[in-house]
Design a protein around this nucleic acid. Structure first.
Lengths: 109, 109
DNA sequence: TCAATAGTTCGGTAGTTAACGAACTATTGA
DNA sequence: TCAATAGTTCGTTAACTACCGAACTATTGA
């Protein structure tokens, strides 16, 4: 299988991270990994085509937010919590706790 | 002069805020207001046309990040710190402290 | 009153992004 | 070996965004 590129910690850029987190679907993906831990793409319940989902996963990976590892036919996604906390202390927690509060933070669909 | 629209606190949306903050120029504007306090557009040293600058300011205002008030021919920009902290606790601080640390968080120009 | 100043809006261009289905690769289990 | 499964890539379209200069509005100070 093809090698998946992950940026080094020092190459994770604030504007890139914020942009990756600014999409409702990607926020949903990140939040689900945060709540349920490392899991395969298959587990995500998003109402988009799988090719679109794959692109979103790539955006998160290339921004340095998630780590993807291959196990069999699966890709297991996890959050790069340590790297993100080292580089942008408090950012991930702030985003996730805002997102996961029950306020209607998301744009009306 | 025309009325400037500012969203109510409850209408400030997380994805919209993250998107507004994901642009290097807008981050620079927000950081400068954070450091130097309320100030007029004229004070910002950005290397873009004033029409482009005006658009960025509008994006920040409509996202609920900044407040613009007119004083004479000036528009004074301030951060909606209280609203942002109420709605997304810790987010603004995390973004600004990451941005203002001296790490090369910004994409190479 | 009127020129200067501060900022906005408009029209256009070029580049980016999200979305999809179809075709592809890679791995496993029968 | 081979069908099924998991996910990626590709080609396309539509929508959005950054950017600019030109023209505009609004306010002040002479």
């Amino acid at each position: 299988m093809k090698l998946l590129h992950h940026p080094d910690r020092d190459a994770i850029m604030l504007p890139t991270v914020l942009h990756a987190l600014s999409d409702p679907i990607r926020l949903q993906i990140v939040s689900q990994i945060h709540k349920d831990g490392e899991q395969a793409c298959k587990k995500f319940e998003v109402s988009i085509a799988k090719s679109t989902f794959s692109q979103h996963v790539r955006t998160l990976r290339e921004a340095g937010i998630t780590h993807t590892r291959a196990v069999g036919t699966h890709r297991l996604l996890s959050l790069r919590t340590e790297d993100l906390n080292a580089r942008f202390p408090g950012l991930l927690d702030a985003v996730l706790s805002s997102y996961e509060s029950n306020d209607p933070n998301i744009q009306p669909t």
